[in-house]
Simulated assay, not measured.
Amino acid sequence: MQLVDNDTFLSQLTALFDSSKDKGTIWLTHKRLSYDGEDAVMADAQASEDSREYRCLLRVTDGGSNKFSTEVEPGQLEKFHAAYGALLKASMTTLRKRDKKREKTRAEQAAQRKKKMTEPVVLDAPKRGNGRRKRQRQVKATLKQQESQQKFKEREEAQRKAQTS
């Protein structure tokens, strides 16, 4: 991890956003730095007024070889956040909008499949004569439904076992 000054950090972040514009992921972390050797436990606000100001640490990685960070002093924080926010707004224009129509149709299809799986198939056609084929289709649908219900139960059991272990 490479520690750089604030301006270099912003310029490297801009270059990283440009390089991963078509494909890639960037992780940004932002946290408060505590003083060396001090506990990270937060004190009660009523117990003592802490007048110390803490620096902020910002880290960036793309999951590969690009890893760098910067420390921002409390006095420079507003200026830095203005530049950082403008950079993020300018760089996140390539994000895709969610396709809500496709999500809605998938949800509807899933609901139909679930309803079809839980609704019992009624065998009301005669065994012989007219309607025999209809009965055969109903029997086939019943068997298929039982099979899908069994697979669903097996998947649920596997998920329960995975969660408990």
Rank of each mutant, 00 (worst) to 15 (best):
V4Q: 07
V4P: 09
D5K: 13
D5I: 04
N6Q: 15
N6P: 08
D7Q: 12
T8P: 01
S11A: 08
Q12T: 02
A15D: 15
A15L: 12
L16C: 14
F17G: 08
F17T: 10
D18E: 10
S19G: 01
S20C: 13
S20V: 09
K21A: 15
D22N: 12
D22I: 06
T25V: 06
W27T: 09
W27D: 04
L33G: 02
Y35P: 05
G37V: 02
G37Y: 06
E38F: 04
E38V: 11
E38P: 02
D39G: 15
A40M: 11
D44G: 13
A45Y: 06
Q46R: 15
A47Y: 11
A47G: 03
Y54I: 03
R59F: 07
R59P: 02
D62Q: 11
F68D: 10
S69Y: 05
G75I: 03
G75L: 06
K79T: 07
F80A: 01
H81G: 00
A83I: 05
Y84V: 02
Y84S: 04
A86N: 08
L87M: 11
K89W: 13
A90S: 14
S91P: 09
S91Y: 03
M92Q: 15
T94R: 15
T94S: 12
L95N: 07
L95I: 11
R96K: 07
K97D: 15
K101H: 11
K101M: 11
K101Q: 13
E103G: 10
K104G: 00
T105M: 12
R106F: 07
E108V: 03
E108P: 00
A110G: 06
K114A: 15
M117R: 14
P120D: 04
P120M: 02
V121W: 10
V121K: 05
V122D: 10
L123T: 07
D124N: 13
P126N: 04
N130Y: 13
G131H: 11
R132M: 13
R132D: 01
K134Q: 09
R135E: 08
R137Q: 10
Q138M: 12
K140E: 14
Q146F: 00
E154C: 01
E156V: 12
E157P: 00
A158C: 00
R160K: 14
R160M: 06
A162Y: 03
Q163I: 08
S165R: 09
